[in-house]
């Protein structure tokens, strides 16, 4: 080991050269991926090129549909999605991830982005989402309220409190003065839902839209306390958007009557 290190000591200037080359390399790779969108975005009017949308996990089904619709309406465009927990998406945006649009599942996670001055203009609320309990098909645990989740022997998963669905669930539990100890705090709403779909957990507190999307793999139980924790979903154009033209057009589609129809079809509430 020592020998190797000593041997490289003499041509040390090369180390600086190597580091510079590394920097150049990384600069290259990031500009390389951008260039694909650039030539198209120069033209004004008709949107074209690639749009990158970071969206909350709960928007997966409806946004995928809207993305296909957008590509059909504007030939030459391509919508790329990254779905995940709103908080981790927000963290990647403030960390410099290349995105054009951010759709969060809570104003709090959107605030991370606006506080970092990474959004262009004020975010707009485009839908609202209510919590619902997802349980096994046929509801074998006979769950009919939030309180039933605290029953002994019931395996409940919640979203982690950092994630909007977890924060909302905690808010609903606090509002009804319930203390619930889950078996796991999942990293996003889809992970929580999956645990019920796989029958590993008996119930999860997720969004109405997730229960909707899971079809007959889970049974949904609505509970009145969910009214205390309705999540507003804000959407915003990002400041460093490479393709602002097409990004604006995508946001417009989401907020249009046509877009709202897709979203309410998925179980979202009107803003």
């Amino acid at each position: 080991m020592t020998r190797t290190v000593r041997r490289t000591r003499r041509p040390l200037p090369w180390a600086a050269g190597g580091a510079a080359a590394l920097l150049a390399l990384s600069a290259c790779s990031s500009s390389g991926s951008d260039s694909s969108a650039k030539p198209d975005s120069s033209g004004s009017g008709e949107p074209s090129g690639e749009v990158t949308v970071f969206a909350a996990a709960s928007l997966k089904e409806s946004f995928t549909t809207l993305g296909e619709q957008f590509e059909k309406e504007h030939p030459g465009t391509k919508v790329t999605f990254s779905f995940g927990g709103s908080d981790s998406l927000a963290a990647s945006i403030t960390g410099g991830a290349p995105a054009d649009v951010f759709a969060a599942a809570s104003p709090k996670t959107m605030k991370i982005v606006t506080d970092a001055q990474d959004a262009s203009g004020a975010p707009a609320t485009f839908v609202r989402n209510e919590l619902e309990i997802a349980t096994l098909p046929g509801n074998p645990g006979k769950i009919s309220s939030l309180k039933d989740l605290t029953k002994a022997g019931l395996k409940v998963v919640l979203c982690d409190e950092e994630v909007p669905c977890g924060a909302a669930a905690q808010k609903a539990l606090d509002a009804s003065r319930l203390k619930l100890t889950p078996v796991s705090y999942e990293q996003d709403v889809k992970a929580a839902l999956t645990k019920v779909e796989l029958k590993e957990a008996d119930a999860a507190v997720v969004y109405r839209t997730d229960v909707h999307a899971a079809g007959d793999k889970v049974a949904g139980v609505e509970f009145p306390e969910s009214a205390d924790a309705v999540n507003d979903y804000p959407i915003a154009l990002l400041k460093d958007a490479k393709n602002a033209e097409a990004a604006k057009a995508f946001i417009a589609l989401v907020r249009s009557a046509e877009g709202q129809k897709v979203l309410s079809g998925a179980g979202f509430l009107k803003p």
Binding site: D87, S88, V157, P182, V183, S184, Y185, E186, Q187
Partner: peptide, 27 residues
């Protein structure tokens, strides 16, 4: 770990899980 054992502090939340979840709110 996070897929099979989930994430619960003290029971299944190991360091890498704690790092990942802390990164979201508290870098």
């Amino acid at each position: 770990t996070i897929t099979f054992a989930g994430n619960f502090p003290g029971r299944t939340q190991t360091m890498p899980l704690a790092v990942y979840l802390a990164l979201q709110s508290d870098p």
